[in-house]
Write a protein that binds this DNA or RNA. Structure first.
Lengths: 327, 327
DNA sequence: CACCATTTCAAGAGCGCTCTTGAAAAAGAG
DNA sequence: CTCTTTTTCAAGAGCGCTCTTGAAATGGTG
């Protein structure tokens, strides 16, 4: 292992340990040439600062915790890419924690992040209730992505407006019987449903909502049932792309053609929905951008610049592709 | 933050600090009732062991580092699921590091893992050269998934056999002009190409290999060019599913039908390839199982049971779906 | 060149835990 | 009941770093 310590470098360079410490951080109050010298000696000895020790001794080490709901959902990978765009150049350390589609790992994931003593947590796709979440927002700085959370910084996309646009798009194509597959939990994520409902009602149509899931396979089953119902909807709008892909799975399995026999509308504009193979109509909430903003907010929070909670908005845009067509 | 320390618990429970430490680990040499008492007091005070401090003080804390190449490639999510199946029940701590499709983040990711002082690294999809990799295998225990690495434990799928089967499958469907889109790097991953070449030669056919990529989009471009060539191949076999999906993107973008106009063969049997929407013919290398085995090997390595390097094999199986059809 | 402000450095006290050491208590043996 | 072995515990020395404190060197000023 790497056993050369700060002490070794100090001795070899003929300075004190604390000076080596300073040299390896931004460090003013140290002569440039001395600093150079220390760094050179450190390099020669193959010294690498021990993050563990520095974490323990210092009050902070500038690490950001990142919670991602699910590795199978491409949208979270987009967010992650956005985060890295800003953290990589800064050399920020990221600690990842992964949940799952039913939320049962959320608490453990957050605990892990706390144990790692990160300065701030960027959370994308948490499913635990607002109440449970409050326990964590009081313990650690949190930047919530795409879900409004109290006592946290928020990087948010206007889901109400986005879902309204999407529904109106379907209506404008002539669809009247539009089903919505909702999010299984409502806390913090209810706006997509609301947008759908309000657009339907404004058009004098009656909403037809089914409780969904975050799992593509589970949604496929749900969609299969919906498509088997006596009065088959002509369009299905799912609460996110992952779910919408499950709908697509159901549609093609039944031998139907998306955008022709049934229209399918997603939400997120994940990389996967963009691929020509899926070519799925969806609402772009700019996941990459959300991730980027979240990381910037996290930086601000760590630097202590802002005392007030920050909320950043990104406007969703409708992206019609080939899975929605005229009725 | 969480400021109740081991010292606090010790005082409140009327025992020594070291005894609290023992109580919170497996710990023998401590009376069961005392242990219960300590744990009860700790819970009441809201004590949570500080992983950072324990890491620094102890020689190991049983953490496993996990390197995954790319979050957009579903196959790595499968591996990760397999890993978690065995680590979750044990309460093992996982430290994640994510690379990217061109390998440029590999070194940084490995460094991060080393800095986190993990006991063993499970690496899936590393792209750095064997030579560079050797620097790390000498510093930390490594379990390599799906790539044979010297001085490391290996959880391996027989790529030579798998690629041979896949190619033979295409040949048996009547294809003669079969293109192969290879891995951009050869170190540790060359067997799929070899399997393809040998199967082609055995059948008296001449291989037609194109250098590929790990990026779906880049492969789409490559495939588009291939499909535009004067003598268009009737089948394209890609080094992995992610690449094969790029081929599919090219195929559908050109208005062709996979499995009819052009056959597309992938490799990995990632979740994505299994979805009805893709329904892609591929070779199942049992990613979930590979992940599971890797975690088990990692456990063995940590427990110090084995001194010799371990190699586990998983047999690949051909999974014909709808993207390969008769010529 | 005396004086004070400023910059550059060394020393040392922790951070919260683990692990070794050895003492005290309990158990077994004769 | 004494002596030995075993188990249960306390004390304390670190792990490798940061950060505060104050001393030494440096610079600026009249």
């Amino acid at each position: 292992m790497n056993n050369v310590t700060m002490e070794d470098v100090a001795k070899a360079a003929g300075v004190s340990r604390s000076h080596v410490s300073l040299a390896y951080r931004d460090a003013y109050g140290i002569k440039p040439d001395v600093r150079e010298h220390i760094l050179a000696v450190g390099k020669k000895l193959g010294y690498r600062p021990n993050r563990i020790a520095s974490l323990l001794a210092g009050k902070s080490n500038g690490a950001i915790g990142v919670y991602l709901q699910d590795l199978h959902n491409d949208f979270f990978a987009d967010i992650y890419d956005g985060i890295r765009e800003v953290t990589d150049p800064l050399g920020r350390h990221l600690v990842l924690a992964i949940g799952n589609t039913d939320g049962s790992r959320d608490v453990q994931a957050l605990e892990t992040l706390l144990e790692s003593r990160v300065d701030v947590v960027i959370a994308a796709g948490l499913m635990i209730s607002d109440k449970d979440l409050a326990k964590y927002t009081s313990k650690v700085n949190m930047v919530s992505v795409a879900r409004i959370v109290k006592k946290a910084d928020n990087v948010y996309s206007n889901n109400l407006a986005g879902a309204t646009k999407a529904t109106e798009h379907l209506i404008s194509l002539g669809h009247r019987n539009i089903a919505f597959i909702s999010n299984p939990i409502s806390d913090g994520y209810g706006d997509r449903l609301k947008g759908y409902e309000s657009a339907m009602q404004s058009a004098g149509l009656s909403p037809r909502t089914y409780e969904g899931s975050y799992s593509r396979k589970e949604v496929q089953e749900i969609a299969t049932q919906i498509l088997a119902s006596k009065i088959r909807p002509t369009a299905i709008f799912a609460h996110n792309d992952q779910a919408a892909l499950g709908v697509m799975d159901a549609v093609v399995t039944l031998g139907l053609k998306p955008g022709k026999d049934v229209s399918v509308m997603g939400y997120d504009n994940s990389s996967l929905s963009q691929s020509p193979l899926a070519a799925m109509s969806t609402v772009d909430i700019h996941g990459y951008e959300l991730g980027r903003l979240a990381a910037e907010v996290a930086n601000k929070r760590m630097s202590g610049e802002h005392s007030k909670l920050i909320t950043e908005y990104v406007e969703p845009t409708l992206v019609p592709r080939s899975t929605t067509g005229k009725m």
